[in-house]
Design a protein around this nucleic acid. Structure first.
Lengths: 122, 122
DNA sequence: ACTAATATATAGATAATCTATATAAAAAGC
DNA sequence: GCTTTTTATATAGATTATCTATATATTAGT
């Protein structure tokens, strides 16, 4: 693993895109939501998150805008997934399924994931 | 992901230890077995594998020996997991379960893995 | 003879993630 | 009133896992 990091290496962009796939969010909200949903397992710090968001924006996978006025405190920069971002998300999602299934296959563990399209009940 | 790599980043040591947990093997055999079991998904090249094996040996998690005589061709260096290696394997295995479950939780996909110890039949 | 497959090994490049640091405003505690 | 914590965004630099490239050597197939 990348040091003793709090993330599963390689999954950072997938996780961020996945959350944004459900609706626009600002940076801090993303990291909190990630922490909550993963049951404290993923603690993506600012130094990891913001470079990822900036990178995704440069690649045209998300777009950002500041929401002024109504929100108190420091102005928040919201991020919204683009059409290209959705395509990238779907690709990464499939890649994740493929790779995690392959790890499980090597570990020789009972299959986890219901094969999605094939007939196995279970 | 680490470049466009053929591995799921962070999983290399787990995969190697896991195979060695089933019996002693030599390097080339490990990479072939990995390729086979993962259905061509994981292609761990020599430049990745051998540094990992040497590292594991330095940490006392595997021990190696050359088998001479009976095998034709270049002599093979076999690797065997140690007691400490088994402990490390179990740790990494659990870590993998924890992290992959957390990714799936964030992705919001139906749960995959039968909870292993909790009452689910399946 | 030449090529491909088997077999091990190391050096250097690349990139993902982490730590540390900086800034700033609001809320909460004392 | 003052301090600390939480919210909020951002960048620079360090670390390290993995990849590519390269080197060497033997055997099998064409």
């Amino acid at each position: 693993m990348a040091k003793k990091g709090a993330l599963l290496p390689g999954s950072a962009e997938l996780l961020v895109l996945s959350l944004l796939g459900e609706g626009e969010m600002y940076g801090y909200q993303i990291s909190e939501e990630l922490r909550r949903r993963s049951d404290e397992t993923f603690v993506m710090r600012a130094g990891t998150l913001y470079p990822i968001l900036h990178g995704l924006e440069q690649q045209g996978r998300v777009e950002s805008f500041e929401k002024e006025g109504d929100t108190p405190g420091r102005p928040r920069r919201y991020y919204r997934i683009t059409r290209a971002g959705r395509a990238a998300l779907e690709e990464r999602r499939q890649e994740w399924r493929r790779l995690s299934a392959a790890v499980n296959a090597v570990l020789g563990e009972a299959f986890a994931r219901a094969p999605l399209a094939e007939g196995g009940r279970c």
